[in-house]
């Protein structure tokens, strides 16, 4: 590693030494990038970018299990658009609803036709992914998304 990366490694080690909660979250391998854990005035503030939305909920569970009563969870779900992951809409015959949020309670913002190719934006959880095409962006149920091999 170069001069900067060597220093950043030391920062990470120091962070883990002075903040055991950081180490707990790191060891859990939640796939969170740029994780920062600051414990001040009885409140633990967590920031970073999670690969999957479920990691954000897992952080709250882990902190609670370690006796943290007050958490400000500022973790965001990473935008994975740059990966170029594509899905085929795998409905039987109907269109696939694209919703504003990750549940059927959210309003429908558009519909993808059967066999349409959409691009992954974010993985909210195992059940709901944010995807888009040139016209629509929103959340779709993963039961109806079949990953297309990158060529």
């Amino acid at each position: 590693m170069g001069l900067f990366d060597s220093f950043k490694k030391k920062v990470k080690e120091t962070s883990e030494e002075i903040n055991p909660l950081h180490k707990i979250l790191t060891d859990a391998n939640l796939g969170i990038e740029n994780l920062q854990v600051v414990n001040a005035n009885g409140t633990v503030t967590v920031t970073g970018s999670a690969q999957e939305g479920e990691a954000i909920e897992k952080v709250n569970e882990l902190l609670a299990a370690n006796g943290v009563l007050s958490v400000t969870n500022n973790l965001g779900v990473a935008d994975l658009s740059h990966l170029g992951v594509k899905y085929r809409v795998a409905t039987n015959s109907s269109n696939l609803n694209c919703r504003k949020g990750p549940s059927t309670d959210n309003e429908i913002v558009g519909k993808f036709p059967k066999d349409a190719i959409v691009q992954l934006v974010k993985k909210h959880n195992a059940t709901w992914h944010m995807v888009r095409n040139d016209e629509i962006e929103g959340f779709c149920h993963t039961d109806y998304l079949e990953q297309v091999q990158n060529t």
Binding site: F7, K10, V11, T14, S15, I18, N19, Q36, V37, V38
Partner: peptide, 23 residues
């Protein structure tokens, strides 16, 4: 003597700890 390290990724508390220890 290292006086400061600015990075969005680095834990600022840990950076301060290292700088105070001297590098």
């Amino acid at each position: 003597k290292l006086e400061n390290f600015e990075s969005a990724e680095a834990d600022s508390v840990a950076v301060a700890e290292i700088i105070n220890a001297g590098l």
